[in-house]
Write a protein that binds this DNA or RNA. Sequence first.
DNA 1: CTACTTGCAAACTCTTTGCACCATA
DNA 2: TATGGTGCAAAGAGTTTGCAAGTAG
Lengths: 150, 150
Amino acid sequence: MSPVRNPPAASTAADGDWRARLRARGYRLTPQRQFVLDAVQALEHATPDEIFAHVRERSAGVNLSTVYRTLELLEEIGLVTHTHLSHGAPTYHSATVKQHVHLVCRACQQVAEVEPEVFAPLVQRLHADKGFTTDVQHLTVFGICQECAS
Amino acid sequence: MSPVRNPPAASTAADGDWRARLRARGYRLTPQRQFVLDAVQALEHATPDEIFAHVRERSAGVNLSTVYRTLELLEEIGLVTHTHLSHGAPTYHSATVKQHVHLVCRACQQVAEVEPEVFAPLVQRLHADKGFTTDVQHLTVFGICQECAS
DNA sequence: CTACTTGCAAACTCTTTGCACCATA
DNA sequence: TATGGTGCAAAGAGTTTGCAAGTAG
C-alpha cells in the first residue's frame, strides 16, 4: 500500500457498526475502505469517478480499482446502494441516510428527491397484485421538472 | 452499402407512418433502417447487441455502428424508446406498442410488465406535489419477484 | 505469520467517431 | 447528381481482472 495518509477519523454514528460488519464477515478494516465510505457519505449521489476524485484529494495512494472493489464490497454488506440516474455512470449513496427516491429531469438533468412515503400506495399495490417487493431505494423516476415544463 | 438482402416487407400498420416521419425530417429510407425498426418491434426489450444479432440473421451487410446510429435516429423521431433494465445495456422497444412499466427482479433478473394505469395515482401526486411530469414509459421498478421472495 | 488487500497495468465491454465510398431521392 | 447514410477501423468511456507486493489481525 503506497502513501496513504492518516485515515479519516470515525465520523458517523454508525461507524462502529460498519467496522463490526466488516469484521463479522472476515473482511479487514483498511484506510482505503474508510476513505471510500467517507466519500460516499460526504458526496451523496456520486459516481465512482467522483468518489475517486474526492478520495484522491485526501490520499494520493488510493487506486481507482480499489474504489470499484470497495464500492462493491460496501454494497454487499449493505452500507451503500447505487442507482442509475443517467445513461452512463451509476451513483452511489450511503444506505444509512434517510431513504429517498430520485426524480430526474430529462431536459435539464436536474435531480430532485422525494420522500419514499409517496410511493407507499404503489408499493402496496405491486405487492398485492403481483407479489412484487419493490426496492424503493433503487427507484428512479424520469420525466420533466416544473421549470422545464413551462 | 454492402450485401444487404431484400429489405423486409412493410409489416406494421404504422409502417407508412414511419416512412413519412423520416421523409418529413429530410431523412432517407434505407433497408438498414427498416431492418432495425423491424428487429425492435419483433424482439421487445432488446439491447443494441441483440438487435444487431437479429438484423444480422437477415442481412449480412449491416454494421453494429449503423444499429446504434439508427436507434438514436428512431428514438429522436419517436418510433422507439429505451429503458435501463439492468446494469449495462439499455433495452429498446417500439413506441407504437402499448405502454407498460417494467418490474425487474434483482434476484432472478426476470422482467415483468405492468399496465401503466397502476402508476396513475403516483403520477398525479408527483405532478401535484412537485410539478413533475413523469415519463412512465421510461420507468423501471427494481425489487424481488414473488418466486424469489419465498 | 497468513490471508486478505492493494496498486498497477492490461484486458474487456459497450458506444462513438472520422473518413472514404455508396445509394436514395 | 447531390447529399445523406453506411461500413470499417480506431478511439473513448467505464469497469474488471491477474498478479506480485504490502499489511491488518
